[in-house]
Simulated scan of single mutants.
Amino acid sequence: MRMLFVGDVVGRAGRKGVQKHLPDLVERFRFEFVVVNGENSAGGFGITESIHNDLCDAGADVVTLGNHSFDQREALVFITRTSNLIRPINYPEGTPGSGAGLFETKSGKRVLVINVLGRLFMQPLDDPFAAVDKALADCPLGDACDAVLVDMHAEATSEKMGIAHHLDGRVSVVVGTHTHVPTADHQILAGGTAYQSDAGMTGDYDSVIGMDKEEPVNRFLTALPRARFEPASGDATLCGLAVELNAHGLAERVAPVRVGGRLSDALPDWD
């Protein structure tokens, strides 16, 4: 089975990038399952129901979130009726929505998607390691599901690497999000789990992590806000991670994906 993960979609530019490139990628590489992180898709902060639907229409089977999950107030409501919108699993009990979901591909394979938020330099939520362990105990790879993808939305690469090694051999993919810059460490760990510290964002890279440059630079210079952060509006690079799994749900091949915009293209060298 081939899976594609698409990194944080930032604003209108990122959404356009998904709509422009994702359908062709799915067709060309025969991806059976696509997960898109959409937590910055609404003006850079959160997600709306119409944007979620647009991402799904472009080819996303599941949309994950992060620390901006509920920046758009409507998300508190529509997430409760949207089974393929996943917020971090380690939010406190009673938070609307779900942090994990079991989904079926067109060929009938079962994929568990888990979204989890790191704690280093982030909100002090529940233990991400324990939260993922519990989800896997309820739905273990090779028994209750055929593949497991974990979106680790975190600031610190050490925490992302730590959870990946903790989960190695028990999940198919651990992919980092949140820092909006694609890392060069895509690999298959010793136990067969595909890993990348950050998939990168899907947005305009002529920016400061997806935002129009002027206001972030102003705040670095003056430490004072002058205007709101607004997403950059240029041509987007779609960034992500492609993984091919074996019959046991572990990775056989992994490749970075970058297409469009300012960054150099990177695509799987697969038939």
Rank of each mutant, 00 (worst) to 15 (best):
G191L: 09
G191R: 14
V257H: 09
V36N: 00
I209G: 03
L125P: 03
T105F: 03
Q196C: 11
F70S: 00
V116E: 00
D57P: 01
R87H: 00
D71M: 09
G44L: 07
N218G: 06
F220L: 15
A60M: 03
E230V: 15
T82P: 12
L167G: 13
G66S: 08
V150W: 05
A100Q: 08
N115Y: 03
N218A: 12
K16I: 14
H153D: 12
A60N: 06
H165P: 00
T64A: 02
Y195T: 01
G249E: 05
L65R: 07
E39W: 12
R73C: 01
I51N: 10
V10Y: 14
L267R: 02
G142M: 09
S83D: 15
S197Q: 05
A13G: 12
L149Y: 12
N67A: 10
V116W: 01
L4G: 07
P124C: 07
Y195K: 00
H178W: 10
A194T: 07
V259R: 14
G101T: 10
S98M: 02
A144Y: 02
E155W: 13
D138T: 10
A194R: 08
R258A: 10
G66R: 04
R253A: 15
S83W: 11
D212H: 15
T222Q: 13
V171M: 02
E93H: 12
G249V: 02
N218Y: 14
L189P: 02
A227E: 12
A247F: 01
L167P: 13
H21Y: 11
L141K: 01
H178Y: 10
A60Y: 00
Q72T: 05
T105D: 10
T48A: 11
D127I: 05
M211E: 08
L149H: 09
L167Q: 13
E49C: 04
T48F: 12
S207H: 12
E27S: 13
T95D: 00
M1S: 06
G200V: 01
L250A: 06
G210S: 10
L250R: 06
V111S: 02
L85Q: 05
Y195S: 01
T177E: 09
E32C: 03
